[in-house]
C-alpha cells in the first residue's frame, strides 16, 4: 500500500460510514419516531377544520402567516422580508406607506400604531403579532363583525401564547387562528 493510500483509504471509508450513520440511519430514526409520536407537528402543523357538513378542510399552517387585507380580518405583519436597515430612508418610506394603508383601513383609529404592524418580520411569514397590536385592532374588528369588543378580546386571548415559563420569548397572538375563530371555523 502506498503512503497516500494509507490516508486516503480510511478517509474514504470513514466518510462512507459517517454518511450512512449520520445521514441515513440518524435521519431515518428521527423521522420514524417523529412521524409516530408527533405526526401533526412533523408535517407542518396544518390546521384542519371539520366543517359542518363533515368534510375536512385545510386552512394552512398554524405557523405560517397568511396575508389579510380586509378590515374584517385581523391584520398581521407585512409579508415578506426586506433586509433594509431600520434607520434607512427606504425603510422610512415603506413604513410611511404601511402607516397610510392602516389609516385608510381604519380612519377612526387615531392611536399610535404598534411597531410590529408596520415592520416586516425576519421570516416574512411571522404568524404572530404582539398583544398590543391585536388590541389596536379590537375596535375595528368588533365594528366590522358586529360583535362586542370583549368578544373579540376573548378570542384574541384564547389564541395568545405567553412567554415560556413566563421568562423566555414574548407573548404573541396567532393571527390566522384569531381570524379562523372570527369566521367561526375554530
Amino acid at each position: 500500500m502506498t503512503k497516500s493510500m494509507k490516508i486516503l483509504r480510511p478517509a474514504i471509508m470513514c466518510f462512507l460510514v459517517m454518511t450512512i450513520v449520520c445521514g441515513v440511519i440518524y435521519t431515518a430514526a428521527v423521522t420514524g419516531i417523529a412521524q409516530l409520536i408527533f405526526p401533526g407537528q412533523a408535517n407542518g402543523s396544518i390546521i384542519t377544520v371539520t366543517l359542518k357538513d363533515g368534510t375536512q378542510k385545510d386552512y394552512g399552517s398554524a405557523l405560517i402567516a397568511q396575508e389579510f387585507t380586509s378590515a374584517e380580518y385581523m391584520i398581521g405583519r407585512p409579508m415578506g422580508t426586506t433586509n433594509l436597515s431600520p434607520v434607512s430612508e427606504e425603510q422610512k418610506a415603506l413604513v410611511d406607506e404601511r402607516t397610510d394603508w392602516l389609516h385608510t383601513l381604519d380612519p377612526d383609529n387615531t392611536a399610535d400604531i404598534p411597531m410590529v404592524l408596520v415592520t416586516a418580520s425576519g421570516s416574512g411569514v411571522d404568524p404572530n403579532i404582539t398583544p398590543d397590536a391585536a388590541e389596536y385592532q379590537v375596535a375595528r374588528l368588533a365594528r366590522e363583525r358586529g360583535v362586542s369588543g370583549d368578544d373579540v378580546r376573548a378570542i384574541i386571548s384564547k389564541y395568545t401564547t405567553d412567554r415560556f415559563l413566563g421568562i423566555f420569548g414574548e407573548p404573541a397572538v396567532n393571527v390566522l387562528k384569531v381570524n379562523l375563530a372570527l369566521d367561526g371555523l375554530l
Partner: peptide, 12 residues
Amino acid sequence: IVTSGSMEGKEV
C-alpha cells in the same frame, strides 16, 4: 408609531 425596540426583521 409606538416607539418600541427595532422590530424590523424580528419575529414577534
